[in-house]
Design a protein around this nucleic acid. Structure first.
Lengths: 249, 249
DNA sequence: GCGACGCTTCGGTCACCACCGAAGCGCCGG
DNA sequence: CCGGCGCTTCGGTGGTGACCGAAGCGTCGC
């Protein structure tokens, strides 16, 4: 009975263009239909078709604004599902070719958002720091310790939901797991909200600010990942990658 | 870069026949190519084609034995992935029609295996009992307590692996989560190995034996789920459903 | 208002793939 | 050794779906 439904559902991601859409939307932001079409290299008409299917299936949520159609992943569960699927893929290689691509991918490797939590070297460093501080336990899967739960509720408790508090998410650049789930999202929100972390340009790469480095050192002790890479702490235009040229998860 | 790989991977499950295969194999046992063909209602030639793709992609592991080709899910991770996908499907309905189907599905609802762990009322009852005994914690996702880890290692420690010890698996008949992961598999193996649990016929339904009821009551106290339903504790032929007519996960 | 723009609808084309029947191959039992 | 059986390979067929260009519709900026 459920086989047709499963096949139809899997079929949503079985098209290369729709897969491109979903992977792009894994950054957690809303994209317009045109942006996605350009990103995937198809005509607007084709993008419309695909978006219809994805929205109708509940994978994507849409929001019309004037003549634009913004679309985003409907749910953290959807993001997790796509991550899980991607984790089963064979490892990737293909180093970047151009200098521009190299600097952009270096920024992404340093720190980025993965749907609504942190990834890259920064993401695993935060995860390690939480574990080192006794807030996170990895003995049997990811779970917050009682101290971790208390600490999390201090910095703005995540809304109670059916979403798991802590879970691991495989980091493609680091080949290790970083913290995801409601706790990972709350931490990311907190760091961005306090200005300890800023987005680089319009992409999904993030950078630790000066005050952020101090705050993180204060919390967890010194670590290489939250020392700013260089002194130009406020020039953000240099690696202003247009959205869509990258597909690092 | 990864979009084509993701699409190809999702495409494996995007076919109704292949989806049927995978759902059937979720029982954790090995099926022959012919059994799967019959189950899905396709010609043997078609089944061969599909099995080639699934094996080549690493989803299935094959084992040739004489003129038979046995095939099973390659990995617990694959089973989990299919479960996760199925969990995103809209809920199902369609009560069984015939009396025979009704008794068979009643047996499945009472207790069955879900890949390598327990599901059905029995599965959630064991999960509840573990939590009630302080061996399992559900406060932040599923995790074993220290006492639970110790208890588990007593009854034959699961081989250390990257597989998470405890995780939840949504039970379709109960609409609640039961214990899966390495711990769930170890418990199921233990109960079957001690004769506390036996398979009903050739299907995936299981039944608590007399000695099993005593042992479980000894461990966790009395519960409705491990009192044998009737006195005919050794007649197993009555609900000998041929594999394939059911598709309960 | 009047273009420009973003998105949508509509036909039509083309490639891909699930499926089968028939023939072939290897293993098993007698 | 021979027939039967399970599986496989091979063409051929049909249906589905991804894609585009062109035309249409609503919104925004001037």
């Amino acid at each position: 009975m459920t086989a047709p439904a499963l096949a139809r559902f899997a079929g949503l991601l079985a098209d290369e263009t729709r897969a491109r859409f979903c992977l792009a939307l894994l950054d957690g932001r809303a994209w317009t239909a045109g942006e996605l079409a350009g990103h995937a290299g198809v005509a607007p008409a084709t993008a419309t078709e695909h978006l219809h299917k994805l929205v109708a299936a509940g994978l994507l949520a849409e929001q019309r604004q004037g003549r634009h159609r913004y679309v985003r992943l409907a749910d953290p569960r959807v993001a997790q599902l796509i991550e899980d699927l991607a984790a089963h893929l064979p490892p990737r290689s293909a180093p970047p070719r151009s200098l521009r691509a190299a600097t952009a991918s270096a920024a992404l490797a340093r720190g980025r958002t993965c749907y609504d939590h942190l990834a890259g070297r920064l993401g695993v460093a935060v995860t390690d720091a939480l574990e080192g501080s006794g807030l996170l336990s990895r003995s049997a899967g990811f779970s917050l310790t009682p101290a971790g739960v208390a600490w999390l509720s201090e910095l703005g408790a995540p809304p109670p939901s059916r979403r798991p508090l802590a879970r691991g998410c495989l980091d493609w650049t680091e080949r290790r797991e970083h913290l995801a789930g409601a706790a990972g999202a709350a931490i990311c929100r907190h760091l961005l909200g306090n200005g300890w972390l800023v987005r680089i340009g319009t992409g999904r790469a993030v950078r630790v600010t000066r005050s952020g480095a101090a705050a993180l050192t204060d919390l967890f002790g010194p670590a290489a990942a939250w020392s700013a890479r260089d002194g130009f702490s406020n020039t953000s235009s240099a690696m202003d990658a247009p959205p869509g040229v990258e597909s690092v998860k």
